Amino acid sequence: MMLSEASDRGRAKRGDSVGAGRAAAEHRQRDERHPWPPRWLRWVPPALVVATMVLDQVTPPRYFFGALLTASVVLALFTYPPLGVLAVGAAGCVLLAVTETLEDYVGPMTIAALTVLATITVLSTSLCVVRQRIESRFRRVQAVAEAVQLALLRPLPARIGPLRLAGFYRAADDEALIGGDLYSVRPTPFGIRVIVGDVKGKGISATQTVATVISSFQEAALLQPSLDQVAERIDVALQLDRDNPPAEPMGGGRPAYAPGKAPAPADEVFATAVLLEFSADARTVRILDRGHQPLLTVRHGTASVVEMDHSLPLG
């Protein structure tokens, strides 16, 4: 995250957001640019039906291409609604029956092919109904997950008082909007206070600690007169998390952490963070570093490390 004093030049438009909000927008843009299944796949089932008809006309009767019709139904399962899958299968059955009848070549192979194609059509249509229900449920779950994650790590406005903000956030898990990193900015009676940090763990499994740190900071920033006292309140909250780890769900429910990933041991609940307190005019800033990466200042295109004292991580 970068913070700078506001200037008349290059001000961000009102309503823009950074951080997790930008990550959510990029997720949606990526899904729009690279949809799955790809759009061109919708043309493959009818193309196979046409190819079957053409090959049947240009080849001797002893050659049989009924398998292409079966393939068209299977591919339609991934791209078409149930009625579309049923239409592709019905068109294939009619085409197969008509061509074989016109060529007077109806035999056991034709009857077997029609039976297989009809069976595949019925099964694919049923699976397509199941696929649509699963996709609908996944979209609802995805929308809820995005809302929860953005409520936890709220998108920041491009400007708070005299400060302009810019940021970029990308979680370790490709499908997650947030992970183990965190940030929060709060206007308070003591100035504009900021926290940027990184908790123990990665991805979804770290969000519980992220929630503890952010909620504690947002409350303490408004009440505590010094950054040291804000950090102490976060320390206490993390200590409570460490002393009271989440219990296993009752009734055989799912664990509170991501499948395949063990939760962090109780003695490893901590976070590195840097806390900042800008004055009302944003011309001075107090900094408290709790084991985090060094801060950088950028002036006239030159970056330099901010020299400061370090102390133990939060928790």
Score class of each variant (00 low, 15 high):
A12F: 11
F65G: 14
D267V: 08
N244A: 08
G197T: 10
G253R: 14
V305P: 09
G10F: 02
R299T: 12
G201K: 13
D235S: 09
S126N: 04
S184F: 00
L83S: 07
A280W: 01
P249H: 09
I287L: 07
L295N: 07
E26C: 10
A51N: 03
A20K: 09
L222E: 02
R14D: 01
R154L: 01
D8I: 13
R14H: 05
L153K: 06
T70N: 08
T115Y: 00
H310R: 15
Y183T: 12
E26V: 15
A145M: 11
I178A: 04
R42W: 03
R170W: 00
Y105W: 09
L114E: 04
Q218Y: 00
Q239C: 04
A87N: 05
F168K: 15
V54F: 08
A282F: 03
A231F: 02
R62L: 03
Q132L: 02
I234K: 07
E277C: 10
E100H: 14
A166W: 05
R11V: 14
T115N: 03
M53V: 11
R233D: 03
A51S: 12
A171Y: 02
G15T: 04
Q29E: 10
E219A: 15
V44Q: 06
A264I: 14
Q218S: 09
T297W: 04
F278I: 12
A87T: 09
A273H: 03
D174A: 15
L223E: 12
A273P: 07
P162C: 02
G253S: 11
M250F: 06
H292N: 12
V141E: 03
V148N: 05
Y63P: 08
E219H: 14
R30E: 05
P162K: 12
L240W: 06
V298D: 08
K202I: 07
S226V: 11
R159L: 02
D198Q: 12
G201N: 13
Q218N: 14
D104R: 15
A23H: 08
G15M: 02
V98P: 02
T115S: 13
R242E: 03
V88N: 04
A206S: 11
P263M: 10
T101F: 02
L127E: 01
L68N: 10
P60D: 04
Q224C: 05
G66V: 13
T115P: 00
G15H: 05
M250L: 15
E232R: 15
F190W: 14
P249V: 10
G179D: 00
V148M: 14
P82F: 00
V106F: 01
R140V: 13
P46R: 14
R286V: 02
V49H: 03
P60W: 06
L75A: 02
P259Q: 08
S205A: 15
L223P: 03
V185P: 07
P189L: 10
L163P: 04
